[in-house]
């Protein structure tokens, strides 16, 4: 009986921690964004994602900004923040931590879309972006 309640306590704790660190994947995030955009996952486009990554926009101080500006032209390589700190690669092929935490993904889309595009990104754009990065080698 002691053993049983101990085991059930362990099981409950285990379930609680599994809920706390719900693991997302690039595929599950793409599915979520496609659903939000009201399109099938197959309608997400890697080439559109690549264009979003590379296109330069006029920044706040007149200088051209793009995702590639900090993350470099090749997303399997490490980038550099404006003050010189290393940014780990954005492509999951080079950095399996990427796109495994929905809250973190949303935080960075919110910040960086504002910085680069001066607006939020749409669900479709977010889906395209991940579609492209997931296949970047």
């Amino acid at each position: 009986m002691i053993k049983r309640s101990f085991l059930s306590a362990l099981a409950i704790l285990g379930m609680a921690s599994a809920v706390a660190v719900a693991a997302d994947t690039p595929a599950s995030l793409m599915a979520q964004y496609a659903k939000q955009a009201g399109v099938p996952v197959s309608a997400l486009s890697a080439p559109r994602g690549a264009a979003l990554y590379r296109t330069e926009h006029p920044g706040r101080d007149g200088q051209a900004v793009s995702c590639a500006g900090c993350h470099t032209a090749n997303p399997t390589q490490a980038g550099r923040s404006r003050v010189g700190k290393r940014i780990e690669p954005l492509a999951p092929a080079a950095n399996p931590q990427r796109f495994t935490d929905a809250a973190k993904v949303e935080k960075w889309f919110r910040r960086n879309c504002q910085d680069v595009l001066q607006r939020e990104c749409s669900a479709q754009e977010k889906g395209d972006f991940i579609a492209w990065l997931s296949q970047a080698r």
Partner: peptide
């Protein structure tokens, strides 16, 4: 933080 030295660094 939403205008952190020219960058958006907003937090929850």
């Amino acid at each position: 933080l939403d205008q952190h030295f020219g960058e958006n660094a907003s937090l929850d």
